[in-house]
Design a protein around this nucleic acid. Structure first.
Lengths: 120, 120
DNA sequence: CGTCTAGCTTGACAGATGTCAAAACAGGGT
DNA sequence: ACCCTGTTTTGACATCTGTCAAGCTAGACG
């Protein structure tokens, strides 16, 4: 199989991530993306996300004590972020480390972009 | 009262809207912003938002028929978007028109920005 | 005033969500 | 083998959410 005719930019991907302000989202894309926004729609998860995003990676053992919440609850919120595709986790020895998935952040950011032609 | 010593940029506002990736959000900001993400965290509302954002303003009468949902349900979702501060509505005669609030979109977009220094 | 249309509010209900306690699981150290 | 610590899973429960039907309000037009 040759890759000689692969387009440089997948046109589907362009439609997929063009800003909200450019064209109405099709229902499938909305269904795909909504869980990411939903995952960020809780104050605890938003803080978890920003704590993880502020550093290369973060141990659960450093996340949990920042909240007045039980370990299982933090674990639950981390699972929601993970299943939304916003973060990845990896166990190394005793501790579990979380990292953001920058491409997910970029996709959401792209959706919220306001093109220069609409900045009024 | 003179305004001679007003800072050009409110330092609080900077802290308020610096990207997630720059520093952990403080709990108050997370509580303030999460409802906006939450409002976008439903496929119907995400589509409504993008339909409204794609044009200067949009009549409810043109939004409702785009969904297989009752009028009250659409009205409910529009109320959620309105109370999250993402859109404004105005009645003019028979119809009600919805507009996006660009500054809200910009605030969320800014939070998701990935600074050039972190683009790896 | 009466009536028609557009949109919102209320009430009800099934299903989802946030939380914790208890139990289970994973590694490390003794 | 045993326990200790860190993390996740399970089960339970109160609250929140998405949806619709029915009723209500606002404006246009006779």
């Amino acid at each position: 199989m040759s890759n000689q005719s692969l387009p440089v930019v997948d046109p589907n991907a362009v439609a997929c991530c063009s800003p909200l302000t450019v064209r109405p989202m099709d229902p499938d894309q909305a269904t795909a993306v909504a869980p990411m926004f939903k995952a960020l729609g809780d104050p605890v998860r938003l803080r978890l996300m920003s704590m993880i995003a502020s550093v290369p990676e973060m141990c659960v053992c450093d996340l949990t004590p920042a909240f007045d919440l039980s370990g299982p609850t933090i674990s639950h919120h981390l699972k929601v972020l993970r299943e939304a595709g916003l973060v990845d986790s990896e166990r190394r020895g005793t501790w579990v480390w979380y990292r953001v998935k920058p491409e997910a952040l970029r996709q959401l950011g792209a959706l919220l972009d306001i093109p220069a032609s609409r900045s009024g």
